[in-house]
Design a protein around this nucleic acid. Structure first.
Lengths: 237, 237
DNA sequence: GGATCAAACCAATCGTTCATTGGTTTAGCC
DNA sequence: GGCTAAACCAATGAACGATTGGTTTGATCC
Protein backbone atom coordinates (compact mmCIF):
# COMPACT_ATOMS: atom_id res chain seq x y z
CA UNK A 1 0.00 0.00 0.00
CA UNK A 2 1.15 3.50 -0.75
CA UNK A 3 -1.27 5.46 1.37
CA UNK A 4 1.40 7.72 2.81
CA UNK A 5 2.20 9.51 -0.41
CA UNK A 6 3.11 13.09 0.49
CA UNK A 7 0.81 15.48 -1.31
CA UNK A 8 3.45 18.19 -1.41
CA UNK A 9 6.00 16.16 -3.36
CA UNK A 10 4.50 16.15 -6.82
CA UNK A 11 7.67 16.50 -8.81
CA UNK A 12 6.66 13.46 -10.88
CA UNK A 13 3.31 13.08 -12.57
CA UNK A 14 0.68 10.62 -11.46
CA UNK A 15 1.30 8.62 -14.63
CA UNK A 16 4.95 7.96 -13.95
CA UNK A 17 4.27 7.19 -10.30
CA UNK A 18 1.75 4.49 -11.20
CA UNK A 19 3.98 3.17 -13.95
CA UNK A 20 6.89 2.83 -11.56
CA UNK A 21 4.78 1.08 -8.96
CA UNK A 22 3.42 -1.50 -11.41
CA UNK A 23 6.78 -1.96 -13.05
CA UNK A 24 8.13 -2.84 -9.61
CA UNK A 25 5.38 -5.39 -9.05
CA UNK A 26 6.18 -7.02 -12.36
CA UNK A 27 9.95 -6.99 -12.06
CA UNK A 28 9.95 -8.30 -8.50
CA UNK A 29 8.70 -11.84 -8.16
CA UNK A 30 5.55 -10.75 -6.36
CA UNK A 31 3.14 -12.54 -8.67
CA UNK A 32 1.35 -15.88 -8.47
CA UNK A 33 2.90 -18.74 -10.38
CA UNK A 34 0.85 -18.05 -13.51
CA UNK A 35 2.19 -14.50 -13.69
CA UNK A 36 -1.22 -12.93 -13.25
CA UNK A 37 -1.33 -9.30 -12.18
CA UNK A 38 -4.11 -7.84 -10.02
CA UNK A 39 -7.07 -6.56 -12.00
CA UNK A 40 -7.03 -3.00 -13.29
CA UNK A 41 -9.74 -1.99 -10.84
CA UNK A 42 -7.82 -3.58 -8.00
CA UNK A 43 -4.58 -1.85 -8.95
CA UNK A 44 -6.37 1.47 -9.20
CA UNK A 45 -7.74 1.13 -5.67
CA UNK A 46 -4.44 -0.12 -4.30
CA UNK A 47 -2.42 2.71 -5.84
CA UNK A 48 -5.09 5.32 -5.12
CA UNK A 49 -5.27 6.20 -8.77
CA UNK A 50 -7.91 6.13 -11.47
CA UNK A 51 -8.36 3.19 -13.75
CA UNK A 52 -7.38 5.29 -16.76
CA UNK A 53 -3.96 5.99 -15.23
CA UNK A 54 -3.45 2.31 -14.47
CA UNK A 55 -4.38 1.44 -18.03
CA UNK A 56 -1.92 3.96 -19.47
CA UNK A 57 0.83 2.43 -17.36
CA UNK A 58 -0.15 -1.06 -18.49
CA UNK A 59 -0.17 0.17 -22.09
CA UNK A 60 3.45 1.17 -21.69
CA UNK A 61 4.43 -2.13 -20.12
CA UNK A 62 2.62 -4.03 -22.82
CA UNK A 63 4.41 -2.05 -25.52
CA UNK A 64 7.67 -2.96 -23.82
CA UNK A 65 6.70 -6.61 -24.02
CA UNK A 66 6.81 -7.06 -20.25
CA UNK A 67 3.15 -7.97 -19.92
CA UNK A 68 0.27 -9.17 -22.09
CA UNK A 69 -3.46 -8.67 -21.62
CA UNK A 70 -6.57 -10.49 -22.70
CA UNK A 71 -10.07 -9.17 -22.37
CA UNK A 72 -12.15 -11.17 -19.96
CA UNK A 73 -9.09 -13.05 -18.76
CA UNK A 74 -6.61 -10.77 -17.12
CA UNK A 75 -3.17 -9.18 -17.29
CA UNK A 76 -0.09 -11.39 -17.18
CA UNK A 77 3.66 -10.91 -16.92
CA UNK A 78 5.85 -12.17 -19.72
CA UNK A 79 4.99 -13.16 -23.25
CA UNK A 80 1.66 -14.55 -24.46
CA UNK A 81 1.79 -18.34 -24.71
CA UNK A 82 2.27 -20.13 -27.99
CA UNK A 83 0.06 -23.23 -28.30
CA UNK A 84 1.84 -24.21 -31.49
CA UNK A 85 4.44 -26.40 -29.83
CA UNK A 86 1.85 -28.82 -28.55
CA UNK A 87 0.37 -29.42 -31.97
CA UNK A 88 3.82 -29.77 -33.48
CA UNK A 89 4.70 -32.50 -31.00
CA UNK A 90 1.53 -34.39 -31.87
CA UNK A 91 2.08 -34.56 -35.61
CA UNK A 92 5.87 -34.77 -35.55
CA UNK A 93 5.78 -38.56 -35.62
CA UNK A 94 4.38 -38.84 -39.13
CA UNK A 95 6.38 -36.16 -40.85
CA UNK A 96 9.60 -36.89 -42.69
CA UNK A 97 12.39 -34.45 -43.54
CA UNK A 98 11.50 -34.32 -47.21
CA UNK A 99 7.90 -33.35 -46.67
CA UNK A 100 8.97 -30.76 -44.13
CA UNK A 101 11.25 -29.29 -46.76
CA UNK A 102 8.39 -29.36 -49.22
CA UNK A 103 6.32 -27.35 -46.77
CA UNK A 104 9.13 -24.87 -46.22
CA UNK A 105 9.50 -24.41 -49.97
CA UNK A 106 5.83 -23.56 -50.07
CA UNK A 107 5.57 -21.08 -47.27
CA UNK A 108 8.92 -19.41 -46.75
CA UNK A 109 9.24 -17.72 -50.14
CA UNK A 110 5.81 -16.25 -49.58
CA UNK A 111 6.89 -15.05 -46.15
CA UNK A 112 10.01 -13.45 -47.62
CA UNK A 113 7.79 -11.68 -50.14
CA UNK A 114 5.52 -10.26 -47.45
CA UNK A 115 8.51 -9.43 -45.31
CA UNK A 116 10.06 -7.37 -48.09
CA UNK A 117 6.87 -5.41 -48.46
CA UNK A 118 6.37 -4.77 -44.75
CA UNK A 119 9.79 -4.57 -43.12
CA UNK A 120 10.78 -1.31 -41.45
CA UNK A 121 14.34 -0.02 -41.42
CA UNK A 122 14.69 -1.39 -37.90
CA UNK A 123 13.54 -4.79 -39.06
CA UNK A 124 16.15 -4.91 -41.81
CA UNK A 125 18.85 -3.90 -39.34
CA UNK A 126 17.78 -6.74 -37.07
CA UNK A 127 17.93 -9.23 -39.92
CA UNK A 128 21.43 -8.07 -40.84
CA UNK A 129 22.51 -8.57 -37.26
CA UNK A 130 21.13 -12.10 -37.22
CA UNK A 131 22.84 -12.96 -40.51
CA UNK A 132 26.08 -11.66 -39.04
CA UNK A 133 25.64 -13.87 -35.99
CA UNK A 134 24.98 -16.86 -38.25
CA UNK A 135 28.15 -16.08 -40.14
CA UNK A 136 30.28 -15.63 -37.04
CA UNK A 137 28.91 -18.68 -35.24
CA UNK A 138 31.62 -21.07 -34.09
CA UNK A 139 30.11 -24.52 -34.04
CA UNK A 140 27.61 -26.15 -36.33
CA UNK A 141 25.09 -26.17 -33.48
CA UNK A 142 25.36 -22.47 -32.93
CA UNK A 143 25.07 -21.75 -36.65
CA UNK A 144 21.86 -23.81 -36.79
CA UNK A 145 20.34 -21.77 -34.00
CA UNK A 146 21.13 -18.39 -35.49
CA UNK A 147 20.01 -19.58 -38.91
CA UNK A 148 16.70 -20.64 -37.39
CA UNK A 149 16.36 -17.28 -35.66
CA UNK A 150 16.92 -15.50 -38.96
CA UNK A 151 14.24 -17.46 -40.77
CA UNK A 152 11.89 -16.99 -37.84
CA UNK A 153 12.49 -13.24 -37.81
CA UNK A 154 11.57 -13.02 -41.48
CA UNK A 155 8.38 -14.95 -40.76
CA UNK A 156 7.51 -12.64 -37.88
CA UNK A 157 8.14 -9.46 -39.87
CA UNK A 158 5.87 -10.77 -42.63
CA UNK A 159 3.05 -9.80 -40.28
CA UNK A 160 0.54 -12.57 -40.91
CA UNK A 161 -0.38 -14.45 -37.77
CA UNK A 162 -1.71 -17.52 -39.55
CA UNK A 163 1.36 -17.90 -41.73
CA UNK A 164 3.62 -17.29 -38.77
CA UNK A 165 1.86 -20.09 -36.94
CA UNK A 166 2.20 -22.38 -39.93
CA UNK A 167 5.88 -21.54 -40.16
CA UNK A 168 6.39 -22.11 -36.44
CA UNK A 169 4.63 -25.43 -36.75
CA UNK A 170 7.01 -26.56 -39.49
CA UNK A 171 9.95 -25.18 -37.58
CA UNK A 172 9.02 -26.96 -34.36
CA UNK A 173 8.58 -30.26 -36.15
CA UNK A 174 11.84 -29.74 -38.00
CA UNK A 175 13.70 -29.02 -34.79
CA UNK A 176 11.89 -31.87 -33.16
CA UNK A 177 14.13 -34.85 -33.50
CA UNK A 178 15.77 -37.54 -35.57
CA UNK A 179 16.98 -35.70 -38.59
CA UNK A 180 18.90 -33.16 -36.55
CA UNK A 181 21.85 -35.40 -37.17
CA UNK A 182 21.26 -35.55 -40.91
CA UNK A 183 21.15 -31.80 -41.17
CA UNK A 184 24.35 -31.58 -39.19
CA UNK A 185 26.12 -33.71 -41.72
CA UNK A 186 24.68 -31.54 -44.47
CA UNK A 187 26.31 -28.45 -42.96
CA UNK A 188 29.96 -28.28 -43.96
CA UNK A 189 32.29 -25.24 -44.09
CA UNK A 190 31.70 -24.93 -47.83
CA UNK A 191 27.94 -25.06 -47.58
CA UNK A 192 28.00 -22.54 -44.73
CA UNK A 193 29.75 -19.97 -46.86
CA UNK A 194 27.18 -20.66 -49.54
CA UNK A 195 24.31 -20.22 -47.11
CA UNK A 196 25.73 -16.93 -45.85
CA UNK A 197 25.82 -15.55 -49.37
CA UNK A 198 22.23 -16.63 -49.92
CA UNK A 199 21.14 -15.00 -46.68
CA UNK A 200 22.76 -11.79 -47.85
CA UNK A 201 20.89 -11.99 -51.12
CA UNK A 202 17.58 -12.48 -49.33
CA UNK A 203 18.15 -9.59 -46.96
CA UNK A 204 19.31 -7.31 -49.75
CA UNK A 205 16.10 -8.00 -51.62
CA UNK A 206 14.09 -7.28 -48.48
CA UNK A 207 16.06 -4.08 -47.98
CA UNK A 208 15.26 -3.08 -51.55
CA UNK A 209 11.56 -3.80 -50.86
CA UNK A 210 11.59 -6.23 -53.76
CA UNK A 211 9.18 -8.96 -52.72
CA UNK A 212 9.59 -11.08 -55.83
CA UNK A 213 13.37 -11.05 -55.59
CA UNK A 214 13.19 -11.91 -51.90
CA UNK A 215 10.90 -14.85 -52.62
CA UNK A 216 13.18 -16.10 -55.37
CA UNK A 217 16.28 -15.76 -53.22
CA UNK A 218 14.57 -17.65 -50.43
CA UNK A 219 13.44 -20.37 -52.80
CA UNK A 220 16.96 -20.73 -54.12
CA UNK A 221 18.30 -20.94 -50.58
CA UNK A 222 15.82 -23.64 -49.63
CA UNK A 223 16.49 -25.60 -52.80
CA UNK A 224 20.14 -25.67 -51.82
CA UNK A 225 19.25 -26.91 -48.36
CA UNK A 226 16.94 -29.47 -49.93
CA UNK A 227 19.64 -30.79 -52.24
CA UNK A 228 22.16 -31.08 -49.47
CA UNK A 229 19.64 -32.82 -47.25
CA UNK A 230 18.85 -35.33 -49.99
CA UNK A 231 22.52 -36.04 -50.62
CA UNK A 232 23.10 -36.54 -46.93
CA UNK A 233 20.14 -38.89 -46.71
CA UNK A 234 20.80 -41.11 -49.68
CA UNK A 235 24.32 -41.58 -48.43
CA UNK A 236 23.10 -43.12 -45.20
CA UNK A 237 19.37 -43.85 -45.23
CA UNK B 1 -39.12 -47.56 -39.03
CA UNK B 2 -39.05 -51.32 -39.14
CA UNK B 3 -42.17 -52.15 -37.17
CA UNK B 4 -43.31 -54.84 -39.54
CA UNK B 5 -40.49 -57.25 -38.87
CA UNK B 6 -41.96 -60.77 -39.11
CA UNK B 7 -41.36 -62.65 -35.88
CA UNK B 8 -41.14 -65.96 -37.66
CA UNK B 9 -38.22 -65.04 -39.88
CA UNK B 10 -35.32 -65.10 -37.48
CA UNK B 11 -32.74 -66.52 -39.77
CA UNK B 12 -30.46 -63.68 -38.79
CA UNK B 13 -29.78 -62.68 -35.21
CA UNK B 14 -30.92 -59.41 -33.72
CA UNK B 15 -27.32 -58.23 -33.66
CA UNK B 16 -26.77 -58.52 -37.41
CA UNK B 17 -30.16 -57.00 -38.14
CA UNK B 18 -29.31 -53.88 -36.12
CA UNK B 19 -25.83 -53.75 -37.60
CA UNK B 20 -27.18 -53.85 -41.11
CA UNK B 21 -29.70 -51.14 -40.39
CA UNK B 22 -27.16 -48.76 -38.92
CA UNK B 23 -24.63 -49.54 -41.61
CA UNK B 24 -27.22 -48.49 -44.14
CA UNK B 25 -27.85 -45.22 -42.35
CA UNK B 26 -24.13 -44.47 -42.39
CA UNK B 27 -23.46 -45.49 -45.96
CA UNK B 28 -26.45 -43.64 -47.36
CA UNK B 29 -26.24 -39.89 -47.11
CA UNK B 30 -28.98 -39.75 -44.51
CA UNK B 31 -26.99 -37.77 -41.97
CA UNK B 32 -26.83 -34.09 -41.11
CA UNK B 33 -23.95 -32.14 -42.57
CA UNK B 34 -21.73 -32.74 -39.57
CA UNK B 35 -22.06 -36.51 -39.95
CA UNK B 36 -23.75 -36.93 -36.60
CA UNK B 37 -25.70 -40.15 -36.07
CA UNK B 38 -28.85 -40.34 -33.93
CA UNK B 39 -28.15 -41.03 -30.27
CA UNK B 40 -27.87 -44.61 -29.09
CA UNK B 41 -31.15 -44.34 -27.20
CA UNK B 42 -32.84 -42.91 -30.27
CA UNK B 43 -31.50 -45.66 -32.52
CA UNK B 44 -32.61 -48.29 -30.04
CA UNK B 45 -36.17 -46.94 -30.02
CA UNK B 46 -36.22 -46.50 -33.78
CA UNK B 47 -34.97 -50.03 -34.48
CA UNK B 48 -37.02 -51.59 -31.70
CA UNK B 49 -33.89 -52.99 -30.14
CA UNK B 50 -32.12 -52.61 -26.85
CA UNK B 51 -29.37 -50.12 -26.31
CA UNK B 52 -26.88 -52.91 -25.76
CA UNK B 53 -27.52 -54.33 -29.23
CA UNK B 54 -27.14 -50.91 -30.78
CA UNK B 55 -23.88 -50.43 -28.94
CA UNK B 56 -22.52 -53.75 -30.16
CA UNK B 57 -23.32 -52.74 -33.72
CA UNK B 58 -21.63 -49.38 -33.23
CA UNK B 59 -18.60 -51.16 -31.77
CA UNK B 60 -18.27 -53.08 -35.01
CA UNK B 61 -18.63 -49.98 -37.17
CA UNK B 62 -16.10 -48.14 -35.05
CA UNK B 63 -13.62 -51.00 -35.40
CA UNK B 64 -14.13 -50.77 -39.15
CA UNK B 65 -13.27 -47.09 -39.01
CA UNK B 66 -16.63 -46.03 -40.42
CA UNK B 67 -17.66 -44.05 -37.35
CA UNK B 68 -16.09 -42.50 -34.26
CA UNK B 69 -17.67 -41.80 -30.89
CA UNK B 70 -17.02 -39.33 -28.12
CA UNK B 71 -18.65 -39.47 -24.73
CA UNK B 72 -20.92 -36.55 -24.06
CA UNK B 73 -20.70 -35.47 -27.69
CA UNK B 74 -22.17 -38.08 -29.96
CA UNK B 75 -21.47 -40.63 -32.68
CA UNK B 76 -20.20 -39.42 -36.03
CA UNK B 77 -19.55 -40.89 -39.44
CA UNK B 78 -16.02 -40.77 -40.80
CA UNK B 79 -12.71 -40.18 -39.08
CA UNK B 80 -12.09 -38.36 -35.80
CA UNK B 81 -10.94 -34.77 -36.24
CA UNK B 82 -7.38 -33.46 -36.03
CA UNK B 83 -5.95 -31.86 -32.91
CA UNK B 84 -5.52 -28.86 -35.15
CA UNK B 85 -8.86 -27.39 -34.21
CA UNK B 86 -7.68 -26.52 -30.76
CA UNK B 87 -4.79 -24.47 -32.04
CA UNK B 88 -7.04 -22.86 -34.60
CA UNK B 89 -9.53 -21.86 -31.94
CA UNK B 90 -6.79 -20.28 -29.90
CA UNK B 91 -5.33 -18.09 -32.61
CA UNK B 92 -8.61 -17.39 -34.39
CA UNK B 93 -9.16 -14.29 -32.31
CA UNK B 94 -6.33 -12.28 -33.82
CA UNK B 95 -6.72 -13.21 -37.43
CA UNK B 96 -8.69 -11.08 -39.86
CA UNK B 97 -10.30 -12.25 -43.11
CA UNK B 98 -7.73 -10.54 -45.30
CA UNK B 99 -4.71 -12.17 -43.68
CA UNK B 100 -6.48 -15.52 -43.80
CA UNK B 101 -6.92 -15.02 -47.52
CA UNK B 102 -3.27 -14.09 -47.81
CA UNK B 103 -2.36 -17.38 -46.16
CA UNK B 104 -4.67 -19.33 -48.44
CA UNK B 105 -3.09 -17.69 -51.48
CA UNK B 106 0.25 -18.88 -50.22
CA UNK B 107 -0.51 -22.48 -49.43
CA UNK B 108 -3.42 -23.65 -51.58
CA UNK B 109 -1.79 -23.24 -55.01
CA UNK B 110 1.13 -25.30 -53.72
CA UNK B 111 -1.32 -27.93 -52.47
CA UNK B 112 -3.04 -28.01 -55.85
CA UNK B 113 0.36 -28.52 -57.46
CA UNK B 114 1.21 -31.47 -55.22
CA UNK B 115 -2.30 -32.82 -55.62
CA UNK B 116 -1.97 -32.86 -59.40
CA UNK B 117 1.26 -34.80 -59.13
CA UNK B 118 -0.06 -37.36 -56.65
CA UNK B 119 -3.76 -37.86 -57.24
CA UNK B 120 -4.99 -41.30 -58.25
CA UNK B 121 -7.87 -41.86 -60.64
CA UNK B 122 -10.10 -42.49 -57.62
CA UNK B 123 -9.01 -39.21 -56.08
CA UNK B 124 -9.93 -37.30 -59.21
CA UNK B 125 -13.31 -39.01 -59.31
CA UNK B 126 -13.92 -37.98 -55.72
CA UNK B 127 -13.02 -34.39 -56.50
CA UNK B 128 -15.40 -34.34 -59.43
CA UNK B 129 -18.17 -35.62 -57.20
CA UNK B 130 -17.51 -32.90 -54.66
CA UNK B 131 -17.50 -30.21 -57.33
CA UNK B 132 -20.81 -31.56 -58.55
CA UNK B 133 -22.24 -31.37 -55.04
CA UNK B 134 -21.01 -27.80 -54.74
CA UNK B 135 -22.69 -26.98 -58.02
CA UNK B 136 -25.97 -28.66 -57.11
CA UNK B 137 -26.13 -27.27 -53.59
CA UNK B 138 -29.37 -25.45 -52.88
CA UNK B 139 -28.61 -22.84 -50.27
CA UNK B 140 -25.60 -20.64 -49.77
CA UNK B 141 -24.85 -22.52 -46.56
CA UNK B 142 -24.76 -25.84 -48.29
CA UNK B 143 -22.59 -24.53 -51.10
CA UNK B 144 -20.08 -23.21 -48.57
CA UNK B 145 -19.81 -26.60 -46.95
CA UNK B 146 -19.26 -28.54 -50.15
CA UNK B 147 -16.82 -25.93 -51.38
CA UNK B 148 -14.87 -26.33 -48.16
CA UNK B 149 -14.92 -30.11 -48.54
CA UNK B 150 -13.51 -29.79 -52.07
CA UNK B 151 -10.62 -27.62 -51.01
CA UNK B 152 -9.96 -29.90 -48.07
CA UNK B 153 -9.93 -32.97 -50.30
CA UNK B 154 -7.32 -31.36 -52.53
CA UNK B 155 -5.21 -30.61 -49.48
CA UNK B 156 -5.52 -34.19 -48.26
CA UNK B 157 -4.63 -35.70 -51.62
CA UNK B 158 -1.52 -33.51 -51.77
CA UNK B 159 -0.10 -35.97 -49.27
CA UNK B 160 1.96 -33.71 -47.06
CA UNK B 161 0.94 -33.94 -43.44
CA UNK B 162 2.50 -30.65 -42.40
CA UNK B 163 0.88 -28.72 -45.20
CA UNK B 164 -2.42 -30.43 -44.56
CA UNK B 165 -2.22 -29.34 -40.95
CA UNK B 166 -1.36 -25.80 -42.00
CA UNK B 167 -4.30 -25.81 -44.40
CA UNK B 168 -6.64 -27.21 -41.78
CA UNK B 169 -5.46 -24.51 -39.42
CA UNK B 170 -6.35 -21.79 -41.88
CA UNK B 171 -9.61 -23.49 -42.74
CA UNK B 172 -10.69 -23.87 -39.14
CA UNK B 173 -9.94 -20.25 -38.39
CA UNK B 174 -11.77 -19.21 -41.52
CA UNK B 175 -14.81 -21.27 -40.63
CA UNK B 176 -14.64 -20.04 -37.05
CA UNK B 177 -17.25 -17.34 -37.23
CA UNK B 178 -17.58 -13.59 -37.50
CA UNK B 179 -16.87 -13.21 -41.19
CA UNK B 180 -19.16 -16.07 -42.10
CA UNK B 181 -21.72 -13.41 -42.76
CA UNK B 182 -19.38 -11.38 -44.94
CA UNK B 183 -18.58 -14.40 -47.07
CA UNK B 184 -22.26 -15.13 -47.37
CA UNK B 185 -22.87 -11.73 -48.84
CA UNK B 186 -19.96 -12.34 -51.21
CA UNK B 187 -21.64 -15.49 -52.56
CA UNK B 188 -24.25 -14.55 -55.15
CA UNK B 189 -25.70 -16.66 -57.97
CA UNK B 190 -23.34 -15.03 -60.46
CA UNK B 191 -20.23 -15.63 -58.38
CA UNK B 192 -21.29 -19.21 -57.74
CA UNK B 193 -21.38 -19.99 -61.44
CA UNK B 194 -17.96 -18.39 -61.73
CA UNK B 195 -16.62 -20.47 -58.87
CA UNK B 196 -17.97 -23.65 -60.40
CA UNK B 197 -16.11 -22.96 -63.63
CA UNK B 198 -12.91 -22.30 -61.70
CA UNK B 199 -13.33 -25.53 -59.77
CA UNK B 200 -13.67 -27.36 -63.06
CA UNK B 201 -10.49 -25.78 -64.33
CA UNK B 202 -8.59 -26.81 -61.21
CA UNK B 203 -9.81 -30.38 -61.34
CA UNK B 204 -9.12 -30.64 -65.06
CA UNK B 205 -5.53 -29.59 -64.44
CA UNK B 206 -5.24 -32.14 -61.65
CA UNK B 207 -6.71 -34.77 -63.93
CA UNK B 208 -4.13 -33.88 -66.57
CA UNK B 209 -1.39 -34.21 -63.93
CA UNK B 210 -0.36 -30.65 -64.69
CA UNK B 211 0.82 -29.26 -61.34
CA UNK B 212 1.68 -25.81 -62.61
CA UNK B 213 -1.69 -25.38 -64.30
CA UNK B 214 -3.46 -26.60 -61.18
CA UNK B 215 -1.57 -24.11 -59.03
CA UNK B 216 -2.37 -21.27 -61.41
CA UNK B 217 -6.04 -22.21 -61.59
CA UNK B 218 -6.21 -22.36 -57.82
CA UNK B 219 -4.48 -19.00 -57.51
CA UNK B 220 -6.93 -17.48 -59.94
CA UNK B 221 -9.84 -18.97 -57.99
CA UNK B 222 -8.57 -17.56 -54.72
CA UNK B 223 -7.90 -14.16 -56.23
CA UNK B 224 -11.53 -14.07 -57.29
CA UNK B 225 -12.64 -14.99 -53.78
CA UNK B 226 -10.28 -12.38 -52.38
CA UNK B 227 -11.68 -9.65 -54.62
CA UNK B 228 -15.26 -10.50 -53.76
CA UNK B 229 -14.45 -10.59 -50.07
CA UNK B 230 -12.82 -7.18 -50.27
CA UNK B 231 -15.77 -5.71 -52.12
CA UNK B 232 -18.17 -7.17 -49.61
CA UNK B 233 -16.13 -5.76 -46.74
CA UNK B 234 -15.59 -2.24 -47.97
CA UNK B 235 -19.26 -2.01 -48.74
CA UNK B 236 -20.22 -2.62 -45.12
CA UNK B 237 -17.22 -2.59 -42.79
C1' DG C 1 -27.42 -70.86 -20.62
C1' DG C 2 -26.98 -67.52 -23.97
C1' DA C 3 -28.91 -63.52 -25.86
C1' DT C 4 -31.59 -59.61 -25.20
C1' DC C 5 -33.74 -55.78 -22.94
C1' DA C 6 -34.84 -52.28 -19.40
C1' DA C 7 -33.25 -49.44 -15.99
C1' DA C 8 -30.09 -46.99 -13.41
C1' DC C 9 -25.85 -44.77 -12.79
C1' DC C 10 -21.14 -42.59 -14.22
C1' DA C 11 -18.39 -39.31 -16.98
C1' DA C 12 -17.67 -36.19 -20.63
C1' DT C 13 -19.64 -32.52 -23.31
C1' DC C 14 -22.63 -28.52 -24.60
C1' DG C 15 -25.67 -24.65 -24.00
C1' DT C 16 -27.06 -21.29 -20.81
C1' DT C 17 -26.49 -18.03 -17.21
C1' DC C 18 -24.00 -14.97 -14.40
C1' DA C 19 -19.99 -12.78 -12.39
C1' DT C 20 -15.46 -11.07 -13.65
C1' DT C 21 -12.16 -8.59 -16.46
C1' DG C 22 -10.09 -5.86 -20.00
C1' DG C 23 -11.72 -2.22 -23.63
C1' DT C 24 -14.14 2.08 -24.46
C1' DT C 25 -16.75 6.14 -23.91
C1' DT C 26 -18.67 10.07 -21.45
C1' DA C 27 -19.08 13.48 -17.97
C1' DG C 28 -17.11 16.10 -14.44
C1' DC C 29 -13.23 17.93 -11.69
C1' DC C 30 -9.06 20.19 -10.86
C1' DG D 1 -4.67 19.04 -20.49
C1' DG D 2 -4.47 15.56 -17.04
C1' DC D 3 -7.03 12.95 -14.01
C1' DT D 4 -11.04 10.57 -11.75
C1' DA D 5 -15.47 8.41 -11.63
C1' DA D 6 -19.04 6.05 -13.67
C1' DA D 7 -21.32 3.46 -16.94
C1' DC D 8 -21.44 0.42 -20.67
C1' DC D 9 -19.50 -3.18 -24.18
C1' DA D 10 -17.20 -7.58 -25.22
C1' DA D 11 -14.71 -11.53 -24.06
C1' DT D 12 -13.69 -14.97 -20.74
C1' DG D 13 -14.52 -18.39 -17.13
C1' DA D 14 -17.03 -20.77 -13.48
C1' DA D 15 -21.31 -23.10 -12.41
C1' DC D 16 -25.48 -25.49 -13.47
C1' DG D 17 -28.48 -28.51 -15.95
C1' DA D 18 -29.54 -31.27 -19.98
C1' DT D 19 -27.74 -34.44 -23.21
C1' DT D 20 -24.89 -38.30 -24.72
C1' DG D 21 -21.74 -42.13 -24.79
C1' DG D 22 -19.80 -45.72 -21.29
C1' DT D 23 -20.86 -49.21 -17.83
C1' DT D 24 -23.18 -52.18 -14.67
C1' DT D 25 -27.08 -54.87 -12.90
C1' DG D 26 -31.03 -57.67 -12.90
C1' DA D 27 -35.00 -59.43 -15.33
C1' DT D 28 -36.89 -61.73 -19.42
C1' DC D 29 -37.21 -64.79 -23.35
C1' DC D 30 -36.14 -68.28 -26.19
Amino acid sequence: MLHNRPKDLQETSEASRVLQAIRQIVSEGLLPSDGRLPTERHLAAELEAGRASVRRALDTLEAEGLIWRKQGKGTFAGQPPDPTEELAAQIASDVDPLSAMEARLCIEPALADLCARRATADDVARLRKLAERTHDAEGSDSAEIWDGALHHAIARIAGNRLMLTAFTLIDEVRMGDDWQEKRHRARTPETRAFYDAQHQKIIDAIHARDGTAAANAMREHLETLFDNLRKSMEGRP
